[in-house]
Design a protein around this nucleic acid. Structure first.
Lengths: 199, 199
DNA sequence: CGTTTTTGACTAATTAGTCAGTAAGTACGA
DNA sequence: TCGTACTTACTGACTAATTAGTCAAAAACG
């Protein structure tokens, strides 16, 4: 998961996204204000409003920013062998984020706002659908190639996503840095039980 | 849940908790104000402050209120036969909340605040520990009685909690009323694979 | 009566957003 | 190479609304 090294960037939008990320990490969503973002940005609040008309606009853009980074890391998996590919995807979903607790916190905070913020809900739904599709596809390939057992690929994908989401929620809420590793093991057990052929 | 027939209660604290619940459900945590709670309460904001000194006090009390109701439903499971008891516990955790989407939303919002609000974090940790202990205990009993396979009861409990938390998060974020049922099936598959003896 | 509960008016701080004005570049033509 | 027009990025001062919390007094209760 590409981190935010704060390598000097000239793009104001990028800078504001990073400032928002820092402000959100420090204060939490409920206390996230334009003023705080402006402070992190090192400019006035009006400077923020110059780039984004409203706070809602900024937050929608910020969510796109977060989810884009997130999808990028998934794309790093290029292996095509189903069994190996599924393993690597699960690693990306459950091992990589280990060092980016701040990111997990920020994302969960925005997730919890989805029911009251349609702009958020749309984005999270699209993102979920996309990753679930990748999982379903690799399961389908595995079945077609005869390396996985006949299984309900759609359900397996949903089950794995549930484990991933549960792990992230627990990592954040319980401040448990073993939550992801535990879930990685659980996912492995689930894959073994439902997909792998005994031999 | 302790609703009186007409929802009327004389206890002011109980009334304020219900008012908070409604306000939170309508506006979300970020927009939750004393004024909005007072409106739901039908009294002035000062009336709220008479019962709770600060907003933080009120929210901590509210979280206790939520988690208490939550634990109560778990206590309804009195069956002692391990296999049946585990099934019923998972039903309570994954089927019952189906009709209480508002509650799931409210809880997730407060959960996401845990990293910034120690008072919340403590309560969620205690609650998680309690339910996880109930799961671990029933698994241990099953193993002792020879109806379950030898298994890492601690890990199984954590795995099931992960599935539960994932289902709840997904039900809220994706507004997916099948998320809990999907997770119920997943939990069943997991139990079958790790605990049940083949016969 | 006294105690509990509530009100209404208040404060001080904070909020998102506006606006006129100001630099500092960039493009382009002569 | 100078001058002019335009754009981008920003500031500082402002507004109008909203915020949590206070307090004296009044009402409601038992």
């Amino acid at each position: 998961m590409a981190d935010l090294p704060d390598g000097t960037v000239s793009d104001p939008d990028e800078k504001i996204m990073r400032a928002t990320y820092r402000a959100l990490g420090d204060d939490g969503y409920a206390d996230l204000t334009i003023k705080r973002i402006a402070e992190e940005y090192g400019k006035s609040t009006a400077a923020i409003h110059y780039h984004y008309d409203t706070k809602d606009d900024l937050l929608a853009a910020f969510l796109d920013y977060l989810l884009d980074r997130f999808v990028e890391t998934i794309h790093e998996v290029e292996t095509t062998d189903p069994e190996q590919r599924l393993d690597l995807l699960l690693d990306k979903l459950l091992v990589d984020p280990q060092d980016h607790q701040d990111l997990l916190v920020a994302v969960l905070e925005m997730r919890s706002q989805a029911p009251h913020t349609p702009a958020f809900a749309e984005r999270f739904e699209a993102n979920d659908e996309y990753i679930r599709f990748m999982l379903k596809t690799v399961v389908d390939h595995g079945i077609d190639q005869g390396v996985f057992r006949e299984a309900d690929a759609d359900h397996v994908a949903k089950a794995l996503m549930t484990i991933v989401d549960g792990a992230r929620t627990r990592a954040v809420v319980l401040d448990d840095d073993e939550a992801l590793a535990t879930a990685r093991r659980t996912a492995e057990e689930y894959v073994t039980a439902t997909l792998l052929k005994e031999n």
